[in-house]
């Protein structure tokens, strides 16, 4: 996996549970270095070993850890640049959901060799969508679950998001858009980085 993916796992564990937990994970996974480097690539085995060690040490089911990781990606103040990149997808949460099929291309636009999931989106009824995601490692759906719930909050929209099983090897998430203007969302100013 790309260093960014590994770095996200490390960043999530360190930010949420502290450097001590990351040190334990590192030691249990037999990682021969202190930090993942965002611009390098690592064997998938290394990513999985770290993730499995994290679940054991935290005593949490894998899906819970992955969902929390997805939430963290959107909500951590240090990852504001990433939240901003996600918000470029559209002015409303519905636009954001409609653009999810582009997420692979968007990710690769930022970083051409990034492992991004392949996503297809089907409309079930006027407010319900089913997202099917394929990725190099298992567990992309719970990451989407955390990420999408956090993005709905970010837009101030009310949406129900839930895991919807696995179909033909694709992990599924169901999204129900209930109220686009449910609450005050977080601000997104297109030119904020410059002002």
């Amino acid at each position: 996996m790309h260093g960014m993916v590994n770095r996200a796992l490390q960043g999530f564990l360190t930010a949420t549970y502290g450097p001590q937990v990351w040190a334990e994970v590192r030691s249990q996974a037999g990682l021969p270095f202190d930090d993942f480097e965002a611009m390098l690539r690592y064997d998938d085995r290394v990513t999985l070993q770290c993730f499995e060690a994290a679940c054991q040490i935290l005593m949490k089911p894998p899906n819970t850890v992955l969902e929390d990781l997805g939430t963290w990606l959107v909500t951590d103040p240090n990852l504001e640049p990433l939240r901003r990149l996600l918000r470029f997808a559209g002015p409303t949460f519905a636009d954001f959901v409609h653009s999810l099929e582009e997420i692979g291309d968007r990710g690769r636009l930022a970083m051409p060799d990034l492992d991004m999931p392949d996503v297809t989106l089907d409309r079930i009824d006027p407010v319900t969508y089913r997202l099917r995601a394929r990725w190099g490692l298992p567990g992309i759906a719970p990451v989407f679950l955390g990420c999408l719930r956090a993005m709905a909050d970010d837009y101030g929209a009310l949406a129900l998001v839930r895991l919807a099983g696995i179909e033909d090897g694709a992990e599924c998430v169901e999204i129900q858009l209930l109220d686009a203007a449910y609450a005050e969302g977080r601000q997104f100013s297109l030119g904020a980085r410059l002002s």
């Binding site: 611009m39 470029f88 930022a110």
Partner: peptide
């Protein structure tokens, strides 16, 4: 233009990562 803005910000972030490396 919005995609250009996206790319512009993404570039700044990845350039910072490369510089740190």
């Amino acid at each position: 233009t919005v995609e250009l803005m996206y790319l512009y910000e993404a570039n700044a972030s990845t350039a910072a990562l490369s510089r740190h490396l």
